[in-house]
Amino acid sequence: MTPDIPELRKQVTRVAIARYAAASGDYNPLHLDEEHARRTGLPSVIAHGLLSFGYAGQLLTDWCGGDPARVRRMRLRFLKPVFPNDELIARGAVTAQTPHGLEVSIEIVRGSEVVAAGDATVAPFQ
């Protein structure tokens, strides 16, 4: 029996963005420099898209009992910018079972708005 995928809730903070910049080495000023972000037409700095990718990875790994080896493929498209203080929910649903594993759809949402979406392949539950 394949269990449902529990939602994952995340609060995006400036501290989280700064920590992700340090952890990834991506110091693009769009993520860190308020004035630079405004000069390029954004209302404020934005979170790294790959921060949402990290949330998607945690969503799947938690579902897999904490075993990252069971996550075999991930794809995520970044649809909307994510800003400091946004509250995000990562959620997923099994869409198919194939010989390669379980196919899962993934969404990262802010309220009713989908900010990132994609899919993944995960090893089946025993």
Binding site: R72, R75, L76, G118
Partner: peptide, 16 residues
């Protein structure tokens, strides 16, 4: 470069 952002990533994983 100053207007470049990530649009999509897709990875298949092998060894840990």
């Amino acid at each position: 470069v100053e207007r470049i952002l990530f649009g999509e990533v897709e990875y298949q994983y092998g060894a840990l």
